[in-house]
């Protein structure tokens, strides 16, 4: 039996329906973006444009970094729930008793975390750009709208989210407590942000080639992470709860 997008779609649709009626998810998806748009807005309007160029770059870097924390944090909330949550509510065994392959199950869970993350992250970034264009000092707006900065945001949003999702699912398959899994996942989501931080702060000059190269590398890491998580996915251990 080959990989089935119908089965992936079944889980994905179920997850999205479940999110809509899950208060915890709704609050998280509403409050986190508010926090992550408020902080950079304050930062933008507090920037002193007459300061040294190094300090100015640092302020811009911190501001843009906030935008990439969102795709790292939101999926950690959703993906950590993916397996341990099913176990907690006793639905994992019925799902795994169907013809679904481990890879299909994992891809569905990853997409269910990725899609809302992308929507929220891009919408928030769009609102941020609109506010910058309308209200920020022209020098600040010019720095924010710099091509490579935009490229970093657009490319790294799904890639950072991807890493966070696979880390979250991997942790979710090994843990028996949702909250502990979420805390661990937030920590595990941070490494890709280090690269982005270096680029945002202009420690690494974000040239087009470098940005694309790092994005490709992170894409490869995300792909390998999927395979690693699929290999770790042990139905017997998950169903029996044995470590």
């Amino acid at each position: 039996m080959s990989f089935s997008w119908t089965r992936v779609g079944a889980i994905l649709q179920k997850e999205l329906r479940d999110y809509r009626r899950n208060r915890f998810v709704i609050y998280t998806m509403s409050l986190l973006p508010l926090i992550f748009i408020a902080a950079p807005m304050i930062q933008i309007f507090a920037i002193n444009v007459s300061t040294t160029s190094g300090l100015f770059d640092a302020h811009i870097g911190v501001t843009l970094l906030y935008m990439l924390i969102l795709p790292a944090v939101i999926p950690s909330v959703l993906s950590t729930y993916s397996v341990v949550g099913e176990r907690e509510q006793g639905t994992l065994e019925p799902i795994l008793s169907t013809p679904i392959h481990s890879e299909e199950f994992l891809v569905a869970k990853a997409l269910a975390a990725l899609l809302p993350t992308l929507v929220v992250s891009y919408v928030i970034f769009g609102i941020f750009l609109g506010a910058v264009a309308a209200f920020a000092h022209p020098a600040v707006a010019s720095a924010i709208f710099e091509r490579n900065h935009l490229l970093v945001q657009l490319l790294f949003t799904p890639l950072v989210a991807g890493w966070s999702i696979w880390a979250g699912i991997a942790i979710s398959t090994r843990m028996s407590d949702v909250r502990a899994a979420q805390q661990l996942t937030v920590l595990a989501s941070l490494p890709p942000l280090a690269i982005v931080a270096l680029m945002s702060f202009n420690v690494i000059t974000p040239s087009l080639g470098l940005t694309l190269g790092l994005a490709a590398a992170l894409l490869l890491v995300d792909g390998l992470a999927w395979r690693a998580v699929a290999a770790m996915f042990d139905r017997e251990r998950l169903v029996t709860g044995r470590r």
Binding site: T6, R7, G9, A10, I11, Q13, K14, R17, D18, R21, N22, Q89, G90, T91, L92, E93, P94, I95, S97, T98, P99, I100
Partner: peptide, 23 residues
């Protein structure tokens, strides 16, 4: 299984639809 293992935030029909598509 011994425990029904239903998605409690989904309707009866939505639960069944999910499994029908899995098969």
């Amino acid at each position: 299984p011994e425990s029904p293992g239903l998605y409690l935030r989904l309707t009866v029909a939505e639960n069944l639809e999910c499994f029908a598509r899995l098969y």
